[in-house]
Amino acid sequence: MKAFTYDRVTSAEEALAAGAGASFVAGGTNLLDHMKLQIVTPDRLVDLNRAGMDAIEPTAEGGLRIGALVRNSDLAADSRIIADYAVLARAILAGASGQIRNRATTAGNLMQRTRCPYFYDTALACNKREPGSGCSAQDGHSRTLAVIGTSELCLCQNPGDMAVALRVLDAVVEVASPAGATRTIPIAEFHQLPGDSLPVREFALEKGELITAVVLPPPAGGTHYYRKVRDRSSYAFALVSVAAVIQPDGIGRIALGGVAPRPWASDDADAAIPQGAKAVAAALFEGARPQEDNAFKIDLATRTIAAVLAEAKEARA
């Protein structure tokens, strides 16, 4: 681990002021791992843990504003979340472990980085870790990686669960810049696709920007599902996950995790829900570019959507 300086801040403003050229650390459950493995070697850490931003508050519109530092465990246990945004609680609880969720924060979770094996071996080429070095996953071990939204530069999937639920809920991410400006980014645009030019950008944040909150619109009603498929029953990232909110009349929203660099959803796919899983999957995977190792994810996702829709149908019957 490279030596670094470390500052604690007690407000968002202080964080932004201290932030230029520094890395924010929240729960540290992702960043510290990367520092130990020398995947990232920041010179400066700004610790947000005393900077507030840890409340869940109602918004004027009837939604909820979740502070960036709200811990994953607290968020999943919040009675308003459980009652009105159950898909979010379920998605969070499907991830990591109790200990990690106690530490992990809302913003940190959104910003978690890929679990691509080549990203983790610093001896091997990876455009995400070292722009321009190449992408070892092309023709490599890509079983866990993305099947759509990829490019020649990067194949990796977004590994998170929480963001998939936020996608079906149409959450927006609230960010503040060092210059004092604030803006919101719809969750659908928060995670970037690799595209054709370097560096491979992962997030829509600009340098020095701080996530202050995630805002949920008023409750969408319906029945909420989060179905995560993985190689073991717990403590594993999704091969495929399905977040869904299905209304009593059978229409609804669906987003997939584990298949793309961002939570994967589309209006066309949502419109196809009444026609069943195959139609939804066809809309979602149009233009998919799977590798030999991970082509099964399309079939698996289709089947998992079918499982969710069957459960929803049963619940309505």
Partner: peptide
């Protein structure tokens, strides 16, 4: 253990990618 034949190594060299059973299994 997944062999990457290009590099001659087991590429899943951590406990996130080499999956031993957990309690829930």
């Amino acid at each position: 253990l997944v062999v990457d034949e290009r590099y001659g190594c087991f590429i899943n060299h951590d406990l996130a990618l080499y999956e031993v059973p957990v309690h829930a299994d």
